[in-house]
């Protein structure tokens, strides 16, 4: 377990850098997680479209969305998602959106 300090707030992260308490998430936290997980200095509107969709989907369903839904909603082609988040939809995008680590081979 490690932690990140974001404007006075102490964020607890698990050994893979996922937020332990998804409720601690906000846009500023996303920026910090993006730097830590993907080395992204500045999130672009394309990044944000993906992150916001994942975040809202998670709040509604308690699940990470399928990459199909991400493409459909944001209008981004699949290959663009992998370019935006080189660590992948799970270890990149979902992590930055403050989701817990998904189950399975990821």
């Amino acid at each position: 377990m490690s932690h990140l300090d974001v404007s006075g707030k102490k964020l607890m992260l698990n050994e893979e850098g996922f937020l332990i308490d998804p409720n601690q998430w906000d846009r500023q936290v996303a920026e910090v997680l993006a730097k830590a997980a993907e080395g992204i200095d500045k999130l672009t509107p394309e990044h944000w479209a993906v992150i916001e969709f994942i975040r809202n989907y998670y709040l509604e369903t308690n699940l990470a969305p399928m990459v199909r839904s991400i493409c459909k909603t944001t209008g981004l082609p699949l290959r663009r998602i992998y370019e935006l988040f080189p660590a992948g939809p799970a270890k990149g995008a979902c992590k930055i959106a403050g989701l817990p680590k998904p189950d399975g081979c990821v």
Binding site: M66, G88, C105
Partner: peptide
Amino acid sequence: NPREPKFFPL
């Protein structure tokens, strides 16, 4: 493997 349809469908 479910990670194919979920995240890596190619």
